Simulated scan of single mutants.
Amino acid sequence: MPRITERHALLSETPGTQRVVTIHRYGSDTSGKKAYVQAALHADETPAMAATHHLLQQLEEADKKGLIKGEIVVLPYANPIGLDQFQDDQLMGRVHLGGEGNFNRGWFDLTEMTKDRLTDRLTNDADENVAIIRKAMQQALTEITPVTEFESLRKLLASEAARADFVFDLHCDDDSLPYLYISDLNWPDCQDFAADFGATAVMMAENSGGGSFDEVYTRPWAELGRLYPNNPIPQATMSMTVEHHGRPDVSDEIGAQDGDALFKFFIRRGLIEGDAGPLPKALCDATGTDACEIIQSPGAGFVTYCMDLGTIVKKGDQVGTLIDPTAEDPTKARIPIFAGTDGIFFTRRQHKAVKPGSVVGKIAGTESLKAGYLLED
């Protein structure tokens, strides 16, 4: 069926203004699986929007040829609020400047919202239980009454994504190689996408502690399964955060490659008729998010690096140097920054000016380093 484009107005907080989210729908959910793709929930992460732009070009061609067999929903930008947050010609799209925090933290707990609605409703049929749970999720989300613009955005995005079998939340890092955050509940099922995407790191956690968007849709199936052990509840949603390189990596070439990885995934999963070609060799195995070292600056100044992205490092290797331009003794202005674990050095800082605690890099390792809150804010 032809593409349907919808424009959803958010709650207006100031007279004479209203922001809109655009949603493109291809195919139909009555004919197969459903995929949901959104770009730039962190609105300053432009490589994600480049990926959806090129994905949409491919979907247009597939739609004209009648090749779409499921439903594919694409939001070319997920956050018009953040897209409007320019300060001195710089887009500040990660955190809500009105005070509601990081756009990708504190999303809904669908387990808590639905668990009591399922009492005496679940059956001995796994597929039937999926339908019952998804209906309960929609009922719970429908009952939310937003009082802010951001709350209306949350309700809109979550209501759409909660219907999907596959949820892709597209982001990017600062200066970075491509990588993924996934639930361990979806590994190794998503190995094919990791290979097509060229992920250099895949980090797993069932609950990273921050209420990020992708975890909203994976966690309930396992959590409800533990609450209702006598009823079969499969892991019905595959959801992931896709980190599309770094902020400077915006080009038609890179965007086309990233869009093509998504398109091939849809072919491999039967949402699009076609041949995805041979699966490339994976560049990495998955490791725990708790094994990712987030390297912080030990002080103020600026940082230089002595390791390229993609370097395999050992604990104790020097990856960079903090330089304090205010040091009274210039011979003591340099503080080495060391790797705290073995692994791949896969992200670093684009803007080299730092303050104490600024994130200067990440290493994906295999040894557990922390528990509880696992994310960078």
Rank of each mutant, 00 (worst) to 15 (best):
R3F: 06
T5F: 09
L10S: 03
T14V: 07
Q18P: 00
R19I: 00
H24S: 10
R25H: 15
G27Y: 07
A35Q: 05
Q38S: 13
A39T: 00
H42W: 05
T46F: 08
T46L: 15
A48F: 00
T52E: 02
H53F: 12
Q58G: 14
Q58P: 04
E60L: 06
L67F: 11
L67P: 07
I68N: 01
G70Y: 14
G70L: 11
V74F: 01
L75P: 04
G82I: 07
L83Q: 07
Q87R: 08
L97T: 04
G101V: 14
W107K: 09
D109Q: 03
M113E: 02
M113A: 03
M113Y: 06
T114G: 02
D116R: 15
R121H: 07
D127M: 10
E128H: 04
N129V: 05
N129K: 11
V130Q: 01
A131G: 02
A136E: 12
Q138H: 14
P146Q: 12
P146E: 14
F150M: 14
E151M: 09
S152H: 00
L153H: 03
R154P: 07
K155T: 03
E160V: 13
E160S: 11
A161S: 04
F166E: 09
F168D: 15
D169M: 10
L170R: 10
D174N: 13
D175L: 13
A194H: 01
F197L: 06
V202E: 01
V202P: 07
M203S: 15
M203N: 12
M203F: 01
A205G: 04
A205L: 06
S208N: 15
G211W: 11
S212Y: 08
F213I: 06
W221A: 00
L224A: 11
L227S: 10
L227W: 02
Q235K: 15
M238K: 14
S239R: 03
H244D: 09
H245S: 03
G246K: 07
D249T: 03
V250S: 04
V250I: 09
S251E: 01
D252E: 10
F265V: 01
F265W: 13
I267Q: 12
I267Y: 10
I272C: 08
E273I: 03
E273D: 09
A276L: 06
G277M: 01
P278F: 06
L279H: 12
P280I: 07
P280H: 12
D285W: 02
G288K: 14
C292D: 06
I294M: 09
Q296R: 15
S297H: 02
A300L: 10
G301F: 00
Y305T: 04
M307D: 00
D308H: 08
D308R: 00
T311K: 14
I312L: 11
D317P: 07
Q318S: 08
T321W: 14
P325Q: 08
P325S: 15
T326R: 13
T326F: 12
E328R: 10
D329A: 08
P330I: 08
T331V: 11
K332Y: 00
A333T: 15
R334K: 12
I337K: 03
G340T: 14
T341H: 02
D342A: 03
H351P: 01
P356G: 06
V359M: 15
G361Y: 02
I363D: 11
S368H: 01
A371Y: 10
A371C: 09
Y373P: 00
